[in-house]
Write a protein that binds this DNA or RNA. Sequence first.
DNA 1: CGACACCTTGAAGAGGTTCAAGAAATGTGG
DNA 2: CCACATTTCTTGAACCTCTTCAAGGTGTCG
Lengths: 241, 241
Amino acid sequence: MIVQSIKLACSNCNLRELCMPLALNEEELQKLDDLVTIRRKIPRGETLYRNGERFSALYAIRTGFFKTTVAAADGRDQVTGFQMAGEVIGLDGIVSDQHTCDAVALEDAEVCSMNFDLLEDLSREITALQRHVHKVMSREIVRENGVMLFLGSMHADERLAGFLLNLVQRLHVRGFSQSELILRMTREEIGSYLGLKLETISRTFSKFVEQDIIEVKQRHVRILNADALRLIVNNQGCHTT
Amino acid sequence: MIVQSIKLACSNCNLRELCMPLALNEEELQKLDDLVTIRRKIPRGETLYRNGERFSALYAIRTGFFKTTVAAADGRDQVTGFQMAGEVIGLDGIVSDQHTCDAVALEDAEVCSMNFDLLEDLSREITALQRHVHKVMSREIVRENGVMLFLGSMHADERLAGFLLNLVQRLHVRGFSQSELILRMTREEIGSYLGLKLETISRTFSKFVEQDIIEVKQRHVRILNADALRLIVNNQGCHTT
DNA sequence: CGACACCTTGAAGAGGTTCAAGAAATGTGG
DNA sequence: CCACATTTCTTGAACCTCTTCAAGGTGTCG
């Protein structure tokens, strides 16, 4: 757990548009910079926080890729999300002052730590920041609603197609390709997130490859036919069998 | 859509402990009362809000019972939650100023409408209220994490057992029995929530009845052996087959 | 009382899982 | 830099849970 006291500056951060999309004046930006003072590096495989740990801060991801998981009483666990640069994690800890899931770096990562008490103080002063915090939390609720729809009423190929489209869309917003991506997680982690076994993920990938919808070389995926994926998600992909 | 301008008073509300568990002074309570001025009655079967509708307020449920659903592009829909008195709904609308799910009353209901802009204004003034809003949203995120765990990695009997325990626990907090409950929703709605078909719900109920874990008379359920349900959820109920 | 929505149960079927084996990639230490 | 161990991925075959389809039963409300 490496904590560095490097002075950061939201005002200069190229992720601000994603992370803090606000129209702030000079003074407000300065206060924001004062809030986000600590940067933490999380090597691949290490946790940013764990279930049961005391909650004190939200984290804005600067670089890297995370998964969050919740554990059942008997040890089974479920991936609840994958998070990338510009996204905020740690919201689960607010309600009970304890984190209720684990956040694990899937590649070397760097996060900006935002002390939550200070964030609350500041968001009482800066209306736009208050609104932003509310939107970040609401967005997470809506995202989870979408996952529930996937898990509760979609087939394996629909889930995986939607997953790929979602990933590539988020990467595209960050300036990456619309059609190529590198998976930072294993088949097993994808499976856990989608409520499927790793073998099913592998088979479904193979099926998509056979249909010339994607190319797969290990973690490297190229989308050849995004429309086909969209049709599959919308359950109109039956005739393509 | 019946809107009444009845003057309400949080200060007198017997649900305040659930809905707004705050230590507020006289003046703050008065401001809260000013915020919550509109009460809406929603007859059974009607919607409080719909996907696509403009978002303007959160709703605190005074009486009655709701379900929320999200719809897929092809029409399939998924129940994302059941909400009862003292719970707050509408959080999904904050992020995009539009609701992204439907909220349907499963029995005649009454809600207190809280204009969200005013709520934000007030929560900048009252620290305890700000904190409370954050906790309500975080609680919803954590709840949905739990549902994802259910949907993603549990069997039919585990899901239903967990569902019953959760319902009865929430009812108990509200002063109802720990062992008896009346289901306000159909088997199909339970099934949708749990990612199962209504026949599976029915069969699993029957299985629990045969094992003397519960009694079922239509919507009326009596829990005879809560420990057995807990064992099932924790995946230690195998030997009871 | 009749119409309708809801629930139960059986039998057949499908989608995904489990088990197993081997291949490919990745990392480690000499 | 190569050999070896380990992790990850793919694919096949058998199996199982849940779904689908179907029919009949129960409760409710005008």
